[in-house]
């Protein structure tokens, strides 16, 4: 997982370099303008081989939906909206604010659940550091962890009713275990000599925990947060399918009842793109805030 992410960012970093070179020129003459545009064109061409499969697939999809399916079975054509139709619907939904409304509702739930799930960081720190706390809490967690968040939906609806709290609870359950497990593991893997060095420089036990153990475990805590946000995002959509009146999960389920497959596809793509964006943003932040760990893992 980490390896594939590393290569993905490498490739996205690469096109930036030549652009920077051409834009540091002091004056923008027509010649340098032309050079710049040529540079962009070359970059775009360089991307083309990578996106070739995607482009071909979209083209086949378009052909199937608009030419082939209508010819053999017009009813089935409805089930497979063409990319052009999806794009148009997406445009309309963005302009009307409908997409933004549902997206914001989902993001808000993800955010609230995340704030609660962050409690797993101090909990994991204590569990990783103090054997006694680990011995007591580990059995509880080992039993709860394998229960899929979705299995909590029926009970949570009875507890919270339908709405934000219930959704947030399900998302929280999806997030909390990856964060907790990774924090515990990160704390346990802290190099013993770092802790000894700190004590030998006069650090109190509190300082050892906050200034050394937490810091040293931070890269893995961030990994846990990344996984947690991803799992939470999946749980979110499922929770909204069943128990919400807004959000992307609600949007696609609602569209199903009126057979608006184009809206369903727009919703699905939004879920995918936003999930990816959250992960990329987090990875980028981690890279900037923890430069020393990026170096180590490479």
């Amino acid at each position: 997982m980490d390896r594939s992410s590393a290569t993905a960012t490498q490739t996205s970093d690469r096109p930036a370099a030549p652009l920077e070179n051409s834009s540091v020129k002091p004056e923008v003459s027509p010649r340098s303008m032309r050079l710049m545009i040529a540079g962009w064109a070359i970059q775009a061409l360089r991307y083309l081989p990578k996106l070739a499969t995607l482009v071909v697939l979209v083209a086949i999809w378009q052909f199937t939906s608009t030419v082939w399916l209508p010819r053999i079975d017009p009813y089935r054509a409805v089930l497979m909206p063409a990319p052009s139709v999806v794009a148009k619907t997406a445009g309309l939904m963005i302009v009307s604010g409908e997409l933004g409304y549902h997206l914001l509702a989902s993001l808000k739930r993800e955010g609230v659940a995340f704030l609660f799930a962050l409690a797993a960081v101090p909990l994991g720190l204590f569990m990783g550091w103090f054997r006694l706390i680990h011995a007591q809490l580990d059995p509880v967690i080992e039993v709860l962890r394998p229960i899929p968040p979705l299995a909590w939906i029926p009970l949570s609806i009875l507890w919270f009713g339908i709405g934000d709290e219930q959704n947030e609870f399900i998302i929280f359950l999806g997030m909390v275990f990856p964060i907790l497990i990774n924090t515990i593991d990160g704390v346990r893997k802290v190099e013993r000599n770092l802790v000894r060095a700190a004590r030998s420089l006069g650090a109190s036990e509190y300082s050892v925990l906050t200034r050394v153990v937490l810091q040293a475990a931070l890269p893995q805590i961030v990994t846990g947060i990344r996984i947690g946000l991803g799992v939470g995002w999946m749980a979110l959509v499922a929770a909204e399918l069943v128990g919400a009146s807004s959000g992307l999960g609600f949007l696609i389920n609602d569209a199903r009842s009126v057979l608006r497959t184009d809206i369903i596809v727009v919703g699905m793509l939004t879920i995918g793109i936003v999930g990816l964006s959250i992960d990329l943003a987090l990875r980028d932040t981690a890279r900037r805030l923890l430069p020393w760990s990026a170096q180590q893992s490479e």
């Binding site: 000599n193 060095a197 700190a198 810091q215 040293a216």
Partner: peptide, 14 residues
Amino acid sequence: QNTIIFQEYALFPW
């Protein structure tokens, strides 16, 4: 008072 230096430095990488 009795501080130690390790073979592998044990510097805080952050």
